[in-house]
């Protein structure tokens, strides 16, 4: 399974959100998308998924244009985990994960559907939540349930929109380890948007960094996360060091941020940073 994006552009009511995006993800690869708020990360994911429909479609799966698929066919190939999930009405965790089987069922559930749902809950280690109500779970638990639902679709491509943004450090690591495990064991291609550059650096095979709807840089974390790139994308200076894991680690400096944002800090700290 290879996902290719050629020359993708998208505008919201005349305002360009993405322009000339090109990328490629192969089987079992984890690609992370980073970039400032409003740079077009979510839009890019939604375009891949056809939640948003670019005028000229340029997303190909194994060379086939995705606009020729109907929604149902596409949903068997691509799973999607949105930034945040709420349910208007109260469903149990099992029911929520069962929704992932929607592309495969008409009316009655097969034994196999139940089996897949149970397996996914097991795989994510949230079996004991199965009969709890989704809306009553913590953010981290909910995120896992939503991943389980996307996995129940048995997709070959998994899109995740900032899956770790609202999680504590333990849940962040759990989710990201899980994604690596998925890529490794199920051969899923994974595209994940993130804010945390260090987590992205640590867990992805390749990264792209977006600025104002355009790909600013792409490649391995080592090639993307340079001090110059980060400065021109985010407008802050930083030190990039090599972490103990052999991946680049970004330490932002705040000395040249506007004065009012740093005013409350003691000068000795400001200087050190």
């Amino acid at each position: 399974m290879k996902l290719t994006i050629n020359n993708l552009s998208f505008t919201y009511a005349g305002v360009p959100a993405l322009s000339d995006v090109e990328l490629e993800v192969g089987t079992g690869e984890v690609l992370s998308i980073v970039g400032p708020n409003g740079s077009g990360k979510s839009t890019l994911l939604k375009c891949i998924n056809r939640i948003l429909k670019p005028k000229q479609n340029s997303v190909l799966i194994d060379g086939k244009d995705t606009s020729t698929f109907n929604l149902k066919e596409l949903s068997k190939l691509i799973g999607y985990v949105p930034q945040s999930s709420t349910s208007t009405f109260s469903f149990t965790v099992f029911d929520v994960v069962l929704m992932g089987r929607k592309p495969y069922i008409h009316w009655s559930l097969s034994e196999r559907d139940n089996e897949i749902v149970a397996d996914m809950l097991d795989f994510l280690g949230i079996g004991d939540l199965a009969m709890r109500h989704f809306n009553e779970l913590s953010g981290g638990e909910q995120q896992k349930v939503i991943v389980a639902r996307a996995l129940a679709q048995q997709p070959q491509v998994l899109l995740l929109d900032e899956p770790t943004s609202s999680l504590d450090i333990r849940h962040q690591l759990e989710i990201l380890c899980l994604l690596r495990r998925l890529a490794l064991t199920k051969g899923c291609s994974i595209i994940v948007s993130m804010h945390d550059l260090n987590l992205a650096s640590r867990f992805s095979d390749r990264m792209i960094i977006i600025k104002k709807g355009k790909i600013f840089a792409s490649g391995t974390p080592e090639s993307v996360l340079t001090e110059e790139t980060i400065e021109s994308v985010y407008g802050i200076r930083c030190k990039v060091t090599n972490s103990v894991l052999g991946k680049p680690q970004v330490v932002p400096l705040i000395s040249d941020l506007p004065e009012e944002t740093t005013l409350k800090m003691r000068p000795e700290i400001t200087e050190k940073l």
């Binding site: 056809r50 109907n70 149902k72 949105p82 929607k102």
Partner: peptide, 12 residues
């Protein structure tokens, strides 16, 4: 019930 985006991603 999970939102329109999710529904779309599930083929609805």
């Amino acid at each position: 019930s999970m939102g329109e985006d999710v529904a779309t991603s599930l083929g609805v």
